[in-house]
Amino acid sequence: MTNADLLALGAILMWASLAALGVSLAHVPPFLLTGLGLLVGSALALPLSRFRLRAWALPWRTLALGVYGLFGFHLLLFIALRTAPALQTNLINYLWPLGMVVLAPLLLPGLRWRAGQLGAALLGFAGAAVVILGRSGASLAGGWHAGYGLALGSALVWSSYSLLTRRVPAFPTSAVGSFAAVSGLLALACHALWEPAVSLSARDLLLIAALGLGPLGGAFFLWDAALKAGDPRRIGLLAFLTPLLSTAVVLVVTGQALTASLALGAVMIVGAAFWGSRAAG
């Protein structure tokens, strides 16, 4: 296992806690929650940059790419969840690891498609589908919703952002704090425009701080470091662990029993990661 794998797994483990924290903060409007979480997360850049604020200064195109990724992803996903069934929306959104594998040769010079990696990515997505569908016992029956297109857009935004960070001039991982800060302010603007005002308890603030230090903060820094150090196709395959671990954490926190669908999905996703790593040589 490479250093990039470990960094990516660190981000994935943090993202796995997002659903459990979201259950505890379900009463907080999503844009408010995201905005505050991203602003807390952006503060992690201070020690990373040795408290030198000039390390946050970036060319405008690099900053635009970061805001496109962090804010664009959440904006499209939240609107999709408001306009389409959550189960199908969540499943479509988890096309983003597959998107990383498929788009990598198109967006990054020097990479090419390998049949084994594409097959592994499809197997990984199938495993994610088993986990997500099995969690609710629901099916994908139902008609088309415009929100599905937005969910697909959110998946494409995150996969393309993850790849395109290697096409802009090199920037330190601490500069991700700039992406998070601007995206957090934009999310709070969306809250002011579209969501009702709410009051937050001390417990809410503590959980939001945990959200910012973990899945809406630290995870983005680890993800950026992983992408700088490793093969994005391999990292994309590892990302299928996110819905698996997230579902497992929710079941443990809520005291529910682990299910056969979770076990099957685990076998498929781990198998996909192993297959993909072997296909990469």
Rank of each mutant, 00 (worst) to 15 (best):
L6A: 14
F51E: 15
F274A: 09
S277P: 01
F274K: 05
L18P: 06
M14Q: 09
G41H: 04
A225C: 09
I269V: 15
A181Q: 03
A197N: 09
G110D: 06
A280L: 12
L206E: 14
W144C: 00
I132D: 01
F171N: 03
L152W: 01
G124F: 07
F274E: 09
W194C: 01
S160D: 00
A151V: 00
A266Q: 00
F51C: 15
P232E: 03
V40Y: 09
W15K: 13
V131E: 08
N90E: 11
H74A: 03
G230P: 13
G10S: 13
G119K: 08
V131A: 04
A141Y: 07
L207N: 04
E195L: 10
L53E: 04
L53W: 13
S49E: 14
A229K: 09
W15Q: 15
Y161H: 00
T89R: 04
L118S: 00
S178P: 06
F221P: 15
F31A: 08
A273D: 09
E195Q: 10
W158A: 06
G255K: 12
G276W: 10
G276N: 08
L163Y: 03
L123S: 06
P215Y: 12
L58H: 08
A266K: 02
V253K: 06
L211A: 04
V157P: 10
T259E: 14
L13N: 02
V168F: 00
A272Q: 09
G66E: 13
A55G: 05
A180K: 03
L186G: 06
A20R: 06
P59A: 05
A84C: 01
F221H: 10
K228P: 02
F240G: 07
A219K: 09
V28T: 12
A129V: 01
V101Y: 07
L216P: 02
A4R: 10
S261Q: 11
V182H: 03
I79R: 10
P30Y: 09
V176C: 00
G119W: 07
F73C: 00
L216R: 03
S183A: 14
